[in-house]
């Protein structure tokens, strides 16, 4: 299997005038195509920072990030945006649906930033069908339950057919029944579509169900 995510000696230091905080310390990480990887660790250990750096939402202080064989180092805003759009899909703990857009329009968001994208509506409807929400397309986010909102967020994450889905505690705001549904959905995306999924979680049961667990403590990988 080929490596789809490669982090080499990645460190992240947050600096203020008075304090310097090392969020990540020389992290090396290889994730293969089609893997479902969990990242675990106590709060503040650097899990979310790692996910943000993999998702190109944040830049490492030192080290390099490669996605699908392309290095992110030195890329300008436009190129980074394009790489994110084509390669990555995000699922957040708080869903982060845009409250002023309908379900359908929310799912269409990644496609409108893709140059030359066509059939946006059709693709969005297919993605919503896949997460079992094709009957809610014209609803507004405020009209959805937590589980439904997270399904819409997953539809949005996969509508652009990215190779990698990054999920930051996707079940953190859901009850156990809904969490089970969302995990099933993520597993089916991994198995059936072959997408690489990197998930941050505190839940050991959910983590055990994935291909690999990576533990973090104080910004370092621990075995």
């Amino acid at each position: 299997m080929s490596t789809i995510i490669k982090l080499t000696d990645v460190s992240k230091i947050y600096r203020t005038k008075t304090i310097e905080t090392q969020a990540l310390d020389s992290v090396n990480l290889d994730i293969n195509t089609g893997e479902f990887v969990s990242i675990m660790g106590p709060s503040g250990c650097g899990k979310s920072t790692l996910l943000n750096i993999i998702g190109l939402l944040d830049k490492p202080t030192t080290g390099t990030v490669e996605l699908c064989g392309r290095t992110a180092e030195g890329l300008k805003d436009k190129a980074l945006a394009r790489l994110r759009n084509e390669t990555l899909g995000f699922v957040f703990q708080s869903f982060h649906l845009i409250p002023t857009l309908s379900v359908l329009d929310n799912v269409t968001v990644p496609l409108i930033y893709r140059p030359g994208s066509r059939n946006n509506r059709k693709l969005a409807l297919e993605a919503l069908d896949k997460v079992g929400l094709s009957h809610r397309v014209h609803h507004m986010p405020s009209q959805l339950s937590g589980g439904q909102a997270q399904r819409v967020a997953i539809a949005r994450a996969i509508v652009g057919n990215p190779s990698i889905v990054l999920a930051d505690e996707p079940c953190g705001n859901l009850d156990s029944k809904m969490s089970g549904e969302i995990m099933d959905l993520l597993h089916s995306l991994n198995r059936e579509d072959g997408r690489t999924i990197v998930m941050v979680t505190h839940n050991e049961d959910q983590a055990r169900a994935t291909d690999r667990i990576i533990h973090f403590f104080d910004g370092r990988r621990v075995e």
Partner: peptide
């Protein structure tokens, strides 16, 4: 801010 960040994470440039 949250909405703008979501849009950025899905590929929107600052200019856009």
């Amino acid at each position: 801010n949250e909405e703008l960040s979501v849009r950025k994470s899905f590929g929107a440039t600052s200019r856009r």
